[in-house]
């Protein structure tokens, strides 16, 4: 089972307390009526689905109820870090250097 750190509760807890909520940092278009069909496709359906470090949203549903972001390696399923919603995506190199 994954152990996930909620940056709001500042506690590392079992996966069962959390709900996965898809790829992170996909911003809703500022002016939706200006988008072409291709841009809508990219926003709605295209995902990086990366084999490697993935930025993703999680929600602490059985705890504080808040959404936060995580960097996780999709090959090993290891979490590199979690961070609060609204914060920029941390740089992987700096993270690894800090370890």
């Amino acid at each position: 089972m994954l152990l996930i750190h909620c940056p709001y509760c500042d506690d590392t807890l079992p996966e069962l307390e959390f709900a996965y909520a898809g790829e992170a940092h996909i911003a809703r278009p500022a002016d939706p009526s200006k988008l072409s069909d291709e841009e809508w496709r990219d926003f709605l359906f295209i995902r990086t689905n990366v084999k490697g470090v993935h930025a993703e949203r999680w929600r602490h549903i059985h705890g504080c109820g808040r959404f936060f972001n995580a960097l996780r390696d999709t090959v090993s399923d290891r979490f590199l870090t979690t961070y609060k919603a609204g914060e920029a995506r941390p740089d992987v190199q700096t993270l690894e250097a800090a370890e």
């Binding site: 089972m1 994954l2 996966e15 069962l16 709900a19 996965y20 689905n49 084999k51 993935h54 993703e56 996780r72 999709t74 090959v75 090993s76 399923d77």
Partner: peptide, 13 residues
């Protein structure tokens, strides 16, 4: 499983 992965494993829950 609820999360995307290439680990070919999945969780016990």
């Amino acid at each position: 499983d609820q999360y995307t992965s290439y680990s070919q494993r999945g969780g016990l829950p």
